[in-house]
Simulated assay, not measured.
Amino acid sequence: MYDFAIRFEQDETGVAVFCRDLPELNSFGDDVEHAIREAMDAIDTTLSLYVDQRRAIPSASEPQEGEHVVQLPAVTVAKIALWNAMVERNMRKADLCRLLDVHQAQGDRLVDFLHTSKMEALENALAALGKRLLVSPASYTRYEVFYIHCGELKTLQANYNDNTDAWSLLLAGLKLKLPKDLESPSPEQVCRNSGISHALLRAS
């Protein structure tokens, strides 16, 4: 529900990050790995902006081709659920503190995305508002491959139950044809023969 999809735009200075569901988000990294790390912090900062402006946080839409899905920590998802429940009831932080009988600082931290909170405290706050947070583990590993094809940064997403490598995922996911001039080529050779120069695998 809150696995936001981000997209990358690469130029000679690095990789910029944007999010359709959170248009206020704007981040940058030296490379893809750095951009993903920076995007996590940027999402927390953007969610804090929604709280400051007393706006409901939107749900994530379906990812589009070439986008990277960011899976938020369970604590962050719980904070989103709590904040949206407060907005739905037109509650302020002070109202939450009175409801939970806690000090202002304690109540504020429950919807502060730049401050960590205990899951038990968030569950208690949600219960006080008649909400429950259900967490179910995924039965598969989601892989994402970042690759450069003809100078353009792209991504490929796939779900696999076992470990694999970036080149094999690209070979299967892009349905690349085997070159006739290579005998028993490796997945990497097939990819490079198709104009793919770099490949990076991440399990998300």
Rank of each mutant, 00 (worst) to 15 (best):
D52M: 13
Y143T: 01
V69T: 14
E67K: 04
K131C: 07
I43Y: 05
V32P: 02
Q104T: 12
P63F: 02
P23V: 08
E38N: 15
S27K: 04
D112R: 05
L72A: 03
L126M: 15
I148S: 03
P137H: 07
E62K: 12
A94Y: 12
L126G: 08
M86K: 07
V32T: 09
S61N: 14
Y147L: 03
Q64C: 14
D112S: 10
H149K: 13
H34C: 09
E123Y: 04
I43M: 07
L122P: 03
L129Q: 08
A138D: 12
P137Y: 04
L126D: 02
A56K: 15
P58Q: 08
Q71T: 12
E38I: 06
S61P: 05
T46G: 05
V111L: 07
H34R: 07
S139C: 09
D101Y: 05
T141A: 10
Q106Y: 12
A74H: 06
T141L: 05
L72P: 02
L82S: 02
E38Q: 15
V135C: 05
R142P: 00
F146W: 02
L47I: 07
L100N: 08
Y143D: 04
H115R: 15
K93F: 09
V145H: 01
V32I: 11
D30A: 13
M86N: 07
M91H: 06
I57T: 02
L72C: 03
P58L: 09
T45C: 06
L114G: 14
S61M: 11
S27L: 05
R20A: 10
D95A: 13
A158L: 08
N26C: 12
D21H: 06
I148V: 15
M119G: 03
G107S: 11
A85F: 00
Q64G: 15
F113Y: 10
V102W: 08
S139K: 12
G29E: 07
P137E: 06
G66M: 00
L49T: 12
T155N: 09
A121S: 15
A138Q: 14
L126A: 05
W83R: 02
S27G: 04
L82I: 05
A121V: 00
V70Y: 02
H103D: 15
L122T: 00
M40S: 10
A42R: 01
A128Y: 01
R98W: 04
H115N: 11
Q64I: 08
K154M: 09
A60R: 07
P63C: 08
G107I: 04
P23W: 06
K154V: 01
T141I: 09
N124Q: 14
A85Y: 01
A60V: 08
K154L: 10
D95W: 09
A127S: 13
L110V: 07
R92F: 14
A158K: 06
H68Q: 08
D41C: 07
L134T: 11
V75L: 09
L82K: 01
M91A: 08
S61K: 13
P73E: 10
A81H: 04
A39R: 01
P58G: 05
R37Y: 12
L96Y: 05
K79L: 03
A94P: 00
T76D: 03
H68G: 01
